[in-house]
């Protein structure tokens, strides 16, 4: 079980301040969505949670221990991370790529074991990429590649998963499937944090939403309280229809008003 807490977290990239004074506590067993307009600081927040960018003031604690004080190798076993984008520098096969997720568990110079192979198989099955197993990952479509990279993160089998835009480039069917997959992880007791742009999916599947605006955490709570028509107008600059269809939440942007 992993709990991540931030206290007065501020981050600057170069000289530009990106996050201001973020206070939150992310508990296990929940699917938490991070939403906000472009440039709001969503990716920087999740990178800061992993200690990938240093805090200029305040800080991040994993189970009460400052993230900077935790050895990288230990942190890697506890929190899996799916970075934004589809960075892939070598034409590896899908199976080999997913196997990278087992690196944190391998002792130096040891071979990959039966437990690792089982974890790789599970991750491949969960992400529905069994038919792509032998393909070269750089030759896949954007959506296929996104699922392969998600499988790579799942293969770590960590107590927490932080995914930066896991739905980007996915078709509607696979978007629903990936959200359901993240839900299953959360219900099994993991802490799942996902940066999302699709507000309908965020509202429908997440237990809790963090809304960022200009580097500040402006709302933090259940989807119904975070996503209101007033906030949509104020933060996204859109008039939106928020309601329910067949009992499921819907957030539909209607028009943009600058």
């Amino acid at each position: 079980m992993v709990t991540i807490a931030t206290q007065g977290l501020s981050v600057a990239l170069g000289r530009r301040p990106v996050l201001h004074d973020v206070d939150t506590r992310l508990e296990p067993g929940a699917l938490i969505g991070v939403i906000g307009p472009n440039g709001a600081g969503k990716s920087t927040l999740v990178r800061a949670l992993l200690g990938l960018v240093p805090a200029t003031s305040g800080g991040v604690a994993i189970d009460g221990v400052p993230v900077a004080a935790i050895r990288r190798a230990d942190l890697a076993r506890r929190i899996a991370y799916l970075p934004q984008g589809q960075t892939l520098h070598w034409p590896l096969t899908v199976e080999r790529l997913v196997a990278l997720g087992r690196l944190p568990h391998l002792a130096p110079f040891s071979r990959i074991g039966a437990a690792d192979l089982a974890a790789i198989d599970r991750a491949i099955a969960q992400a529905d990429i069994g038919h792509l197993r032998g393909r070269v990952a750089t030759e896949l479509s954007g959506g296929e590649r996104a699922r392969v990279l998600l499988a790579r993160a799942l293969a770590v089998e960590a107590d927490a998963l932080i995914a930066d835009e896991p739905l980007a480039a996915l078709d509607p069917g696979h978007q629903l499937e990936v959200m359901a997959l993240l839900r299953v992880q959360a219900e099994a007791g993991a802490l799942v944090v996902a940066v999302l742009h699709d507000l309908t999916l965020a509202a429908r599947h997440c237990d809790r939403l963090l809304l960022l605006h200009e580097g500040r955490l402006v709302a933090d709570g259940p989807p119904d309280t975070v996503l209101t028509a007033e906030r949509m107008a104020e933060i996204y600059g859109v008039r939106a229809w928020i309601g329910r269809l067949e009992g499921r939440r819907l957030v539909v942007p209607l028009d943009h008003h600058g």
Binding site: R72, A73, A76, P83, H89, L100
Partner: peptide, 20 residues
């Protein structure tokens, strides 16, 4: 060797896999 493998996923990817 393993750190180089992890770098296939970029710097953030490698760091999150435990590479210093």
């Amino acid at each position: 060797g393993r750190a180089l493998d992890a770098l296939t996923l970029g710097e953030d990817g490698a760091t999150s896999l435990g590479v210093d």
